[in-house]
């Protein structure tokens, strides 16, 4: 990645309050096209809130967020445009339980991208093959395992052909034996050069794919560094403490 290129995501002094509680305290971050960022930190540190601000599932209260040249404001047109460029994978999958896997994947391309049913189904099958479950296309989400559901969720996001993918603790709700199949899909995606921001505690995954590690605590970005520096020589004491807790077992 080139350093002097305009970042595809830029957060400038972003703050967010939930009532009295300040979830984000003037966060600054830049993500380049094709960069893989892994965000970690203790629970309640604001990592989910930060990435949820990037596709405006949460509204930031102060500062500026610019995604792919579009600033997130009240302007609904801008918000929809950004959301169509940004895919998101949730901890709880959030598949549509009343629709088959295939309909889960074709709904947004047909409604938001105006693809025909045939086009949308082609795209959907292509991505189901990439996450290796094309044979489940006509099942309902509840008939799949957790790992399969999360892979469907990833495929659903990819069907919109996003330029950026956000992952909000994608493996936290999974049984241990299913974590790998989801991480494999994400590693594959990273290899293809997708711009990704991943909130996760999977440090093995982070070491494999991350260009940049971000550590957050109490709503602030405490440290941001390439993984080589981050894991071997963290600067801040809070980062050291967190890493020792998470890597010791």
């Amino acid at each position: 990645m080139t350093e002097n290129q305009d970042p595809i995501i830029r957060l400038t002094d972003v703050s967010k309050f939930f009532g009295e509680f300040q979830a984000l305290k003037s966060v600054n971050m830049e993500v380049q096209l094709g960069e893989r960022v892994v965000v970690c930190g203790p629970s309640g540190s604001g990592k989910s809130t930060m990435i949820r601000c990037i596709n405006r599932l949460e509204e930031h209260d102060a500062g500026r967020i610019v995604v792919d040249g579009k600033e997130l404001t009240e302007d609904m047109g801008n918000i929809l445009a950004v959301r169509r460029e940004v895919g998101m994978v949730f901890q709880q999958f959030n598949l549509f339980p009343h629709l088959t896997v295939l309909r889960n994947l074709t709904l947004a391309p047909m409604r938001a991208r105006k693809l025909s049913l045939k086009e949308a189904e082609e795209v959907a099958m292509q991505y189901l093959e990439r996450v290796q479950i094309p044979d489940q296309a006509n099942k309902y989400p509840s008939q799949l395992s957790g790992g399969q559901q999360q892979r469907v969720a990833i495929a659903r996001s990819l069907c919109m052909k996003p330029r950026i993918m956000l992952f909000d603790e994608p493996t936290s709700a999974l049984d241990p034996e299913m974590i790998k199949e989801v991480l494999d899909v994400m590693i594959e995606l990273a290899r293809e050069g997708m711009t990704m921001i991943v909130v996760t505690h999977e440090m093995g995954f982070a070491k494999t794919v991350a260009d940049t590690m971000v550590f957050m605590d109490h709503g602030e970005i405490v440290e941001s560094a390439p993984p080589s520096d981050f894991f071997t020589a963290p600067e801040s004491e809070r980062t050291q403490l967190f890493l020792s807790q998470i890597l010791s077992h």
């Binding site: 596709n55 405006r56 599932l57 929809l80 959301r83 169509r84 940004v86 895919g87 998101m88 949730f90 709880q92 959030n94 598949l95 549509f96 709904l107 947004a108 409604r111 938001a112 659903r156 996001s157 919109m160």
Partner: peptide, 17 residues
Amino acid sequence: DRGQWEAGDAVGLSRRD
């Protein structure tokens, strides 16, 4: 579930859809 709204938002569906 609120997650259903969020999933709809995240894939860029309008409120009506």
